[in-house]
Design a protein around this nucleic acid. Structure first.
Lengths: 198, 198
DNA sequence: GTAATTAGAACGAACGTTCGTTCTAATTTA
DNA sequence: TAAATTAGAACGAACGTTCGTTCTAATTAC
């Protein structure tokens, strides 16, 4: 791979990193393209060269992060094991991701993408959320989760963990997320678990 | 009350209603003051006369809605009865409010207020959320709720119901919220309830 | 008639975008 | 090997539009 390609990748990465941080920190509309360029140490022209326009930059960012989220869920679904173990592992990885890359998680959970990406579907009807509901459906079919509305079960199982993540991102949770994992998961699973038949 | 005040109140109400709808529907930064004026059937001058500037308009809206939310919670806390009954009644009223005034609920739950009201505290550390955590603490002290971290209990008890509300606001929940109440609350309470000692 | 209120044209700053230029490095030509 | 050519990447000043805000004349209310 020629050196030029490294340079190119590097500039794109620099710009995307700056955009992620600025968009998340101060919002898309409070961030000018000049801001992104200055923060990334890159000229405005380069940004337009690589991403077309400001919306293209946001779109690239959004696509990259939703893809990572989707891979995360696909990896979990591909695991062998009960629905319980899969769902728990999903929470484990979401907690780890939120600690490692809080800006990425905040961009996914907080940003009102419809406001600057008008033709995006609402995030709750995106693949990752659909796959979470499918995970629940399998759990019900296997008798691990009580018979109930899938929407209710999904909200009840993942609502607590996700709320813990947003609380942490808001900076009002004193300890890192993994420290709360057992207690959080205990509550979440109690909410939906079918009565033990063993 | 003189007629002039009616006129004034009426204009203010019209403007606030238009702003609520537009800010929530398309976002604060996608809504121009001209839009608000046209939608409300009121002149630009009037808006600046009443609210000072665009941020003042948003601030008035935000203050009015957080005040309503706070009163809602205070009413519930003032009720006699167990923590269980209080928390359930809170969910009942939140569901009813979300159905009756979806734009108000969406503005409170979705809008990233820090982006256009820079000096506001994060909403999760606002009075309403603090009061919800206090409700939990009392439940733990009374032995209704298991001994656990208050943040975890709060996220586990209210995370599911709140997620149901956002799902409904996003338009992917087929039925009105109250129809899900019993099932949702059953899950939520199982998550945190202390074992029965009777 | 006076004071308060409104309407909407006009202003100015901020911002997204464009464009002509320069730079770098690889490829071709002689 | 040296010079010439090409392609794409980066730059940043300049442009045109949008939008928050101001201002003044007209209108309303009593």
């Amino acid at each position: 791979m020629p050196a030029a390609d490294f340079q190119q990748e590097d500039t794109r990465t620099l710009v995307l990193g700056a955009a992620l941080r600025l968009f998340t920190e101060q919002g898309y509309f409070n961030t000018s393209v000049h801001d992104v360029g200055r923060t990334a140490g890159v000229s405005i022209g380069s940004i337009y060269h690589h991403f077309g326009d400001k919306e293209g930059l946001a779109r690239t960012l959004y696509a990259a992060l939703t893809a990572r989220m989707q891979h995360l869920i696909e990896d979990v679904v591909r695991m062998e094991g009960s629905s319980h173990d899969q769902a728990r592992e999903l929470v484990v990885r979401l907690f780890a991701w939120a600690e490692a890359e809080p800006w990425e998680m905040a961009f996914l959970l907080y940003a009102r993408h419809r406001e600057f990406l008008p033709d995006e579907a609402p995030i709750c009807s995106s693949r990752p959320f659909v796959m979470m509901r499918e995970m629940i459906s399998r759990g019900i079919a296997r008798g691990e989760i009580r018979q109930m509305d899938v929407m209710v079960a999904s909200a009840s199982l993942f609502g607590g963990p996700i709320r813990m993540i947003t609380t942490r991102l808001d900076g009002i949770l004193p300890h890192p997320l993994p420290g709360y994992l057992d207690e959080v998961w205990d509550c979440a699973w109690r909410a939906v678990a079918a009565p033990r038949t063993t």
